[in-house]
Design a binder for these strands. Structure first.
Lengths: 145, 145
DNA sequence: AAATAATAGGATATAAATATCCATAAGTAA
DNA sequence: TTACTTATGGATATTTATATCCTATTATTT
């Protein structure tokens, strides 16, 4: 339901949120999140352009969050790379009755709205440590690296 | 968020639901729903295989619903052509802790679950005529055809 | 200044979703 | 049987998403 790109972005952001102190290189993030490095680079660029992370070139560079994990919602992350689109006009034709959607598309837009609301209500911090949960990014296969 | 294929399937089913008596040819459905005919044919095949509609070849043939519009949910339609997939195992790696999702994917799966529930609760009949709403399939540009 | 480490960006490759085309099969009517 | 209508299924084309590769740019360290 979510695109691969959005999934990758969320993994990367979750990883950055787990280490808010140190800048993480794309390579480090790729290793921890199992996202292919070249593709991840593009995703990180998008997150940078959206103002969610900062990028630092050169030695000891990398990426880091621009806000606290408690202040970034997963909605923002998704919107930065592969936005949920609300249905505002009927996709069938020219909107001859303005902004009134037909019942079908009203329902579908409702569903998008629910997702939107749901994502808006969850921060990266919450995604990191829910009570009684497993490690943030599931079974990281190489926890020591 | 929904694939084009799912959108097309819903349009077609909504159209069939609006005329439960008569069989509609793929061409008729395509004309009313503005779905490209060759592609619609494939979608209708999927709906047929899922047991939602019957297909009749030859003169006066076409497609019709196999159940009443009040008895078909939009969830079934979506599942027939482009299923929502619940997240049951962490997509990151081998599930070393069984069916326990990490907080991130638990959240994402929650969202899918909400959509699922939402779609399960809406029937084609409801999509056809909500109180005070516009015509079922928005502004059909050629209402007379 | 030179060497190294890192991101940025453009070009390209691959895979998947979307869309089309055509020949065939199956049904109806005369 | 013949002519016609309609769905079926296979092959193919097009577009978009995903993924890779390579060079340039920016920053740090010595």
């Amino acid at each position: 339901m979510l695109s691969q790109t959005a999934e990758y972005a969320l993994r990367a952001m979750a990883h950055l949120a787990s280490l808010p102190e140190e800048a993480q290189t794309a390579q480090q993030i790729a290793g921890q999140t199992l996202v292919p490095l070249p593709y991840l680079s593009k995703v990180l660029q998008l997150l940078g352009k959206a103002g969610l992370i900062s990028a630092q070139r050169g030695l000891h560079g990398g990426f880091r969050l621009l806000r606290l994990p408690t202040e970034i919602t997963i909605y923002e992350v998704v919107q930065a790379v592969d936005p949920l689109k609300r249905i505002t006009v009927c996709p069938l034709a020219i909107a001859t009755h303005g902004s009134n959607l037909c019942p079908l598309h009203r329902q579908l837009d409702n569903a998008v709205g629910q997702i939107e609301e749901s994502f808006r209500s969850v921060t990266l911090a919450e995604v990191l440590s829910e009570p009684g949960s497993n490690r943030p990014l599931c079974a990281t296969p190489n926890p020591a690296v």
